[in-house]
Simulated assay, not measured.
Amino acid sequence: MDERFGLDRRVRLLGPIPLDSGRGFAPVEIAYETYGALNADAGNGVLVCHALTGDQYCASEHPLTGKPGWWARMVGPGKPIDTDRYCVICANVLGSCMGSSGPASVDPATDAAYGMDFPVITIADMVRAQELLVGHLGIERLHAVVGGSMGGMQALVWASLFPARVARAVVIASAARHSAQNIAFHEVGRQAIMADPKWRGGAYYAENDPPAAGLSVARMAAHITYLSEAGLTDKFGRRLQDRPGKPGAKSFGFDADFQVESYLRHQGLSFTGRFDANSYLYITRAMDYFDLADAHDGRLARAFASTKSRFCVVSFDSDWLYPTAESRRIVHALNGARADVSFVELASPFGHDAFLLDNPELDRVVSGFLGAAA
């Protein structure tokens, strides 16, 4: 059996990775998982790219939470990304905290965690690390790169930076740049973390006492952007929590009176057990810096001038984090570059998170696009 493939894999690659900041980073650790087998010509590789708080466990049980993979409904035998047909690779991004090099990793120069000495990274830097991994796995050209949200940004960068290595790119609920509103929400989250006394300037690893309160608030603020007003109203409305002996009563205090408050607090607290606060700072900054047109004199079409990839762009009508207008901007740029692109806006009441939830129409779109003849 080839030791490079399977679950809970980790590889140390010498690199160095040339970072957009001008620094080089080496060596780089990449944690990843693969599902399905690579065929004889290594032409059936599908790279699945995760979002901000995701990880490599897209179709397998998460080791910390025990929950199914974040895209287990999409990746697997007979599923839209069919592991009977494709060898699916999912890697933890550079800067994250589930095994790939990030702020919590040990700096070989100091034998201590990098903390805030870890270099500031970009989405392109994440993709450069993935490109090293794909080469390590012996794949010259990927059948597809697929991602939602920040994963869609990575798919776009793959097609721009490595046009000869991507046959198809599936970009779901994403954008080619981060808006001022999105940057603002991220800054609220970062400030919540850095205002927590336990952050200690990022040097909290030795004490094993992370800034959980700040990270929890950051997650709560971000989670609101992943939902829709209609979805929140339908699920919670203004309903009050039931209390012992007082069903649906106000406390006339600042406990979680409303069900939606309790929901957000649960989301925040559960997040702190599986994610690193410094990684949250680094990855949100990478997303804020993202503007694919920036290196091309502000002309997005030029980012795809050399691409031979086919594109499928998907948006959701209730997504206000990355609204359909952002997807249309990508499609217009691809049309300007004379690229082969399909676009669809899907209906869903679930906002940005719709790409993670059951949606038969999305399943059909992804399955059909991946299986279509070149």
Rank of each mutant, 00 (worst) to 15 (best):
G6Q: 03
N39R: 13
L14Q: 09
F5S: 03
L38T: 02
D20F: 07
G6E: 05
G45R: 12
A40P: 11
V28K: 00
Y57V: 09
G15C: 04
G43R: 01
P16L: 14
A26T: 01
G36T: 02
D41S: 15
P27D: 01
A40F: 14
L47S: 15
I30V: 12
A42S: 12
G45V: 08
R10G: 08
G45Q: 01
L52T: 09
F25W: 02
Y35M: 10
D55N: 14
G15A: 14
L47M: 11
S21H: 03
R9H: 10
A42H: 11
Q56R: 09
S21I: 03
Y35G: 04
L13Y: 01
D20H: 02
N44Q: 08
G22K: 02
Y57C: 06
R23H: 13
T34F: 03
G15I: 04
R4L: 05
C49P: 00
I17L: 04
L19T: 00
R12T: 04
C49V: 01
R10P: 10
F25M: 13
T53A: 14
S21V: 00
A40M: 14
P18Q: 06
A31E: 05
Y57M: 10
P18R: 03
D55W: 15
R12H: 04
P27G: 02
A31C: 10
L52F: 15
V28Y: 00
P16V: 09
P16W: 05
G22F: 07
G43C: 10
A37I: 05
E33M: 13
G22I: 01
Y35A: 06
A31T: 01
N44K: 08
G45W: 12
D41H: 08
G24H: 09
Q56L: 15
N44F: 04
R4M: 03
G54P: 02
G36K: 10
A42W: 05
V46F: 15
T34K: 04
P27A: 04
A40S: 13
C49N: 08
R9Q: 13
G43V: 05
L13K: 00
V46C: 06
Y57D: 12
G43H: 04
V46Y: 07
G36C: 11
T53Q: 14
A51L: 14
G36V: 10
V28A: 01
Y32F: 12
